[in-house]
Design a protein around this nucleic acid. Sequence first.
RNA 1: GGGAGGGUUCCCGAGCGGCCAAAGGGAACAGACUGUAAAUCUGUCGUCUCCGACUUCGGUGGUUCGAAUCCACCCCCUCCCA
Length: 401
Amino acid sequence: MKNVLDVLRERGYVKQVVFEDELYELLGKESVTFYTGYDPTADSLHVGHFVTLMAMAHMQRAGHRPIALIGGGTAMVGDPSGRTDMRSMMTKETILHNVECFKKQMSRFIDFGEGKAMIVNNADWLYDLNYIDFLRDVGACFSVNQMLTAECFKQRLERGLSFLEFNYMLMQGYDFLELNKRYNCVLQAGGDDQWSNMLAGADLIRRKVGKKAYALTFSLLTTSEGKKMGKTAKGAVWLDAEKTSPFDFFQYWRNVEDDRVATCMKLLTFMELDEIAELTAYKDERMNAAKERLAYEVTAIVHGKDTADRVLKEVKASFSLDVDNMPTVEIASPIGIIDVLVKSGQCKSNGEARRLIEGGGVSVNETKITDYAWTLPEEITSKGEFVLHKGKKVHLRIVIK
RNA sequence: GGGAGGGUUCCCGAGCGGCCAAAGGGAACAGACUGUAAAUCUGUCGUCUCCGACUUCGGUGGUUCGAAUCCACCCCCUCCCA
């Protein structure tokens, strides 16, 4: 069987590796227990987490044992990595709620069957730590001088860093040590922004128990301009269907930039590499087929095949104006066009709707609406439904209740 | 604890008594061009009963005909000294 590190490299997951050759050998000869941590800072996982979950899934398929660590304890401290300001503190209740949400979502991607994988919460060992004991035991192993040179604190050293957050690194390091002791976990994987935190843990294990530990970071999903992917007008792209509808989720991937398609396919689907190469070899409108495939595959993994099938049908109907199968929104007795736009959720306020119409972005049944005082004519109200277009990407069937 | 500088609309960031719903950039949405792409150009981007009105510039109270702009107190942040 292929070494999983090769698989991950080919697909473009791997960014940095500690003791690369040794780790490669280890992964090639035995089942390795590894972990990736997720801080429950929201009530749903998002696209950024998804990349690492996929990497975990690949590793699990290669026979290794993943531990999904949910940072119920570390979330109480807040990770300063990549942040320009302090995170707002979350209450224990919120964190607890988020932990539950994460657990539910993760089981869709990772098989948590007996002995195959585990899900643990670092609150189990962090909440009850004794300050003095912890300082003597773990704090003594860290050099402030060294910590200050870490990349993850650089930005914050210019803008301010609280002692609370400064301790995050120790917490994460301690997690790795704890997992190493409890489950013989020898590898930590995670987003590249976690590099210094991961090294801290590997170092701590070496110093405390004299064993080798490894770290591996994954590339973050970025746009061609290097910005983090997964943000839209409505905020992050969530994996929770309630927060980002499967339709919107699908459309997000359907609309990625051309030169991101191959990357996304490699990182977010299980598609074979040669198939990906084939599909993305074009530089013209044939890319659209690849994008549709990407969107379908990702949606199927996140929301299930049935949902992906349904959404694909809806999307196709929507763009080919096949009224019977288009996404439909029911609204109660709309008066004018502004009312329709707001009630259907396409505009946040009347003013926004008005401006959109003035800008020429709205059509009803193929007729562009130019007057915001426009009201539904008799032939539409008697029929009880019509097609609403917002821009060229939103096509809805509106049914009047 | 002492001294200095700050908190502005989604983000960055101007403004420093009226001409401010507040420059500029980014993000976003829409229009043109296209391939439901990128780049480019254009428009919009607080709310409303929209040629007018209303609510915003950390909080609370003042001064003033009039405050994001001045004063007082409070909260938060940064830097220097201890």
